[in-house]
Write a protein that binds this DNA or RNA. Structure first.
Lengths: 159, 159
DNA sequence: ATATTTTAAGACAAAAGAGTCTCAATAACC
DNA sequence: GGTTATTGAGACTCTTTTGTCTTAAAATAT
C-alpha cells in the first residue's frame, strides 16, 4: 500500500474542504457523514493536519475545520508528509538503513528514479486543482456518488 | 510503505539466490544468517515463493531453496505479486472501490500515470540483472556489508 | 448561569502485520 | 534402523494500524 488509510482519509477530507473553501468552518461530523469515514477516526487525522498548520479548527456552534492556506495552493505532498511522514520518499526499497548514492543497494538507482515520479506527482498536484476537476466533471470522493452529493446539505434533516 | 516487509525480505532473498544460481540448493538458515532476517519468518516467505513456482525447495541434508527459472529471467514484479499481490498496481490512490477510467476519482489519471512508472520498473528489472550489478560493484544486500560477505562460507564454522 | 454544539485528548478494542516457537515430514548418511 | 539436516505447517505472541468510546474544554446562544 502506497499510503496509509489515515493518509488517504486525510486527502479525501482535504479535497472536500477545498471544494468549500469560502472561509466557513465545516463540522467534522458533516465530513465524516459525507465521506463515509468514522467520525472519531477522522477527528484524529484532522487534528494532525491542524497541528501542522494545514488546517484551522474552531470549537463550538458554527465551528469546524477549514483550510488554512491564505490563498496559497496546497500540494498533496503537504498532506502526505503531515500524516505518513517522508518515509515513502526517502526509504530504501530493500529496507537497508543508510542506503544512498554513497552506499547503495543494487536497486537504489532504479528505485530513486521511480520514487522521483511519485514525488513529482505529489508535489505538482494541488488540492484546488483536483477539487475543481472533481466539481467540473462530477467525479467521486465517496464509494457511491459524484461530487454533487457532497453539496445537498439537507438530506439529513428529515423534519 | 511501498512494499511490505515480507516482500522486501523476499526480494533480498531472491537476489541472494540469483548470485548463487548454480543449481545447488541454499539452506534457508544460511540465507537468514547472511541477510540478517529471522529464520522462521524467512521460511514462511520462501514457502510462498515456492508455492508460486518461483523457487524450488528440497528437504534433508544438502537441501534448501533455489531459483526455479529454467534459464528465464525473473522480473522483480513476480516476487512482488507473489507476496504483496496486485493491490499496489490496481488500487485507487484515494481508496475508492471500483475506481477506474469509467468512474474515476479526481486523482485517478495522475495516479495511473505514476503507477505505470512503478509497474514498468518492477517489470523491466530482473533478478539476474541486479545480482550481476551487485556483484560487479560490490553493493550491499545487508545492513553492513557488500556482496562479498555473502560468499565467505566458513566464518560461522570456527572449529 | 445553563444548555448546546462543536473540537481535543486519551483510554480502550479490534484487526492486520511481523516475528517466534514447536512439532511433523522428508531425505541423506551412518 | 537410527540420527541428523533440512523444509512444511500451524499455533502462538508482539507490535502497529485502524477504529471506537468517553470525558474534557471551548464557544455560542438563551
Amino acid at each position: 500500500m502506497l499510503l496509509s488509510k489515515s493518509c488517504v482519509y486525510g486527502l479525501r477530507a482535504s479535497l472536500f474542504l477545498a471544494t468549500r473553501d469560502n472561509g466557513e468552518y465545516v463540522p467534522i461530523r458533516k465530513m465524516s457523514d459525507k465521506l463515509e469515514i468514522s467520525f472519531h477516526f477522522l477527528t484524529k487525522i484532522l487534528q494532525q493536519l491542524t497541528a501542522e498548520g494545514i488546517m484551522e479548527s474552531f470549537k463550538g456552534p458554527n465551528g469546524g475545520i477549514r483550510l488554512n492556506r491564505n490563498g496559497a495552493e496546497v500540494p498533496l505532498m503537504d498532506i502526505v508528509l503531515a500524516i505518513d511522514g517522508s518515509q515513502l520518499l526517502t526509504e530504501c526499497a530493500l529496507g537497508l538503513p543508510g542506503c544512498g548514492t554513497k552506499n547503495p543497494c543494487p536497486l537504489h538507482d532504479k528505485w530513486a528514479e521511480t520514487r522521483d515520479g511519485i514525488r513529482e506527482m505529489l508535489e505538482e498536484t494541488t488540492l484546488t486543482e483536483l477539487a475543481e476537476k472533481g466539481m467540473e466533471e462530477n467525479l467521486r470522493l465517496t464509494t457511491d456518488g459524484g461530487f454533487d452529493i457532497l453539496f445537498n446539505d439537507h438530506e439529513d434533516e428529515p423534519k
